[in-house]
Amino acid sequence: MHRIDCPWCGTRDEAEFQYQGDATVVRPDPDASEEAFFRYVYLRENPKGWHTEWWHHVGGCRQWVKVVRNTLTHEIFATGRAQEDLPLPGTRAKPRRRTRPKQ
């Protein structure tokens, strides 16, 4: 059982969350090509090791929580709010805010 540190509620059991997949994909601008949307919807990396994921706190604050988790060891490196940019362990670059397309 994972213990996830929700930035709003504190550390909670995995059972309160719903796994929602890859948090690194960014929804394309509405004007983007069909191909861009195809990639957004269907194509996923399946990394062995560190990965940034969505865990939806459905049994708590109902926030989409960003989690940097190791898919091999299940270790959690960092958790954050939906709009936060979380660095992977070992990356030296200062976390940069990802620019999101305005709609």
Binding site: R27, V58, W64, A82, R100
Partner: peptide, 14 residues
């Protein structure tokens, strides 16, 4: 509800 929460929190927080 989860779909809408994704849209408002992740896609269009503005």
């Amino acid at each position: 509800l989860a779909h809408m929460e994704h849209a408002s929190q992740v896609l269009w927080p503005d």
